[in-house]
Design a binder for these strands. Structure first.
Lengths: 141, 141
DNA sequence: AAGCCTATGTATAAGGT
DNA sequence: TACCTTATACATAGGCT
């Protein structure tokens, strides 16, 4: 017999699940790399198998991220060096000294900071739209 | 004309690149979710388009990760309080100075540190088992 | 720019070794 | 267990609107 349509739910049989994992995991990483190459996208992908094995791909290095940050900041130009140094300090000194619980705490906080940051940007964008509507006198429903 | 084979290199034409990005990005996230569901894998995927837009998926919540950790932790209980103070320092002073990209980079690093930590504990556990086997003179295959 | 369409390329479920 | 095979399902490039 050959390929059938499958339902997207947890595969019960352990061996089948592992076989499918290795096939699809490989495919996923290939797709991620292709997208990154074709479309100039920056991608981070981390996968833990059910057995705890880790697989990772990132199109960007820490250096590149910091470099990209430096390019973008025209305000805060003089704060940049200092902030990069701070980031390196956080990375090098602090993370090594933390235990698992604290790393998880930190992870949670970074998540929240990220969320707050993104939310703030969304709000700013929304405000821009609202302002624009008011200025030009639009009356969408 | 219809679909041709394409070479995996940066698409020069901007509009074509954007069209391909939205198609393939969507496909990538679908594949990520399918893998997670089918194979019980934990996945984190972050994509930045060339225009800087962010797309994100994670199969695990912070709560789940912490819950999973708590099952394992019995050592290090008394070190927790002191290090939490350090952590709060990191939190309060450092995080506020970082921008979105840096937070994301940090998040990734924390993820990695976390995993390294968990792996170390797994190894310790494994060693304990091995030691035990030697002490009691077991001879499993 | 955002969706269809459809022919074709690619990924992969089952099975076999 | 990990690698082949192959028929089929799925993803998507190019074109059109």
């Amino acid at each position: 017999m050959t390929r059938r349509k499958i339902e997207i739910k947890r595969i019960d049989k352990k061996t089948a699940r592992q076989v499918t994992f290795s096939k699809r995991n490989k495919g996923l990483f290939k797709k991620a790399m292709e997208l990154s190459t074709l479309c100039d996208a920056e991608i981070a992908l981390i996968v833990f198998s059910a057995t705890g094995k880790r697989f990772e791909y990132s199109s960007l290095s820490v250096q590149q991220v910091i470099g990209r940050y430096n390019l973008h900041s025209d305000q805060n130009l003089n704060r940049t060096d200092q902030q990069s140094v701070e980031l390196q300090k956080v990375k090098g000194e602090e993370l090594d000294g933390l235990n698992t619980e604290e790393l998880q705490e930190l992870e949670k906080m970074v998540h929240l900071s990220l969320h707050r940051d993104v939310k703030k940007k969304d709000e700013m964008f929304l405000n821009e739209i609202t302002d624009h509507k008011q200025k030009v006198g639009c009356h969408y429903a």
